[in-house]
Amino acid sequence: MTSIELNIVVAHSIEAKPLLKLLRMKKCTTSTTFPLYKNDQGECLIVSGMGKIAAAAATAYLAARQENEKNNVRAWLNIGIAGHQNAELGSGVLAQKLTDYATGRSFYPPMSISGINTSDVITVDKPELEYPLNAAYEMEATGFYSSASRFVTSELVQVFKIISDNPRNHVHNVNLDMIPEWISSQEENILMILGKLKALVNDYNRIYQLPDEYHQLSAKCRFSATQIVQLKKVCQRYIALGLQKDLQSRVLSSCTTAKLIITGLESGLADQLLTGTQK
């Protein structure tokens, strides 16, 4: 089964519940600090707890856990409830601009997903009671975004908020039982965002994934950091030039030092190019 490289971060277990059902996820750790769930496709969901610091910490925790799994990167999505000055309860908005109210710092998630309503999102440290701007107010997005975009390119990081309160239905009157219902009502949009993020991340991983031959060669002996860079580059050149078979034959060669492996690869490539198309 194809592995899908995607992580979801939510603040509350009540927000997680409908998503776990939708994505058929099961708990995969005994940790109570950051409950973590996973499905058969490899998609993960982590419950961060409330606030931007918790969101940043959970994101970093999950990224660190996954760091050595593979070379592939993952897309990241923060889903959660928010208040809004004028959006209807249960409606969903994709973040177009994130502002940390405390610091005034703004972030701009690339608008790589179309077809969904967008909104500015303001991350506050305590619930916003006045809704002064035409924006979604919530407590995690900037922490999540600034943390996730340390691990992956920002095109792969998005924030989706579902409106739970507005000036007509105040934050103090939010009916918690309605939260799973509101999130479920946004299933179509959530699946659309996930689908587009998966397409992007698969594309990214296809482009930047190192060939198997690189892993086999790098396991043959000890390479310095500089030599690893050289090895990556020369392996990528073989693949780009359609010389995978020649690269495979190099894996079987008897070179036993990093220097000899790299020199052999480079001279082999030069020979190929000499007899190739270069005039």
Binding site: Q96, K97, S106, Y108, P110, M111, S112, S114, T118, D120, S149, R150, V152, T153, S154, E155, L156, L200, D203, Y204, I207
Partner: peptide, 25 residues
Amino acid sequence: PQIRCERYGEIFNRKAQNFRLQKKS
């Protein structure tokens, strides 16, 4: 989406962006 910003560099010069992915949209 029409989004206000202070300076274009906040979007254009930020770190962690991929020219190739961005070129798609």
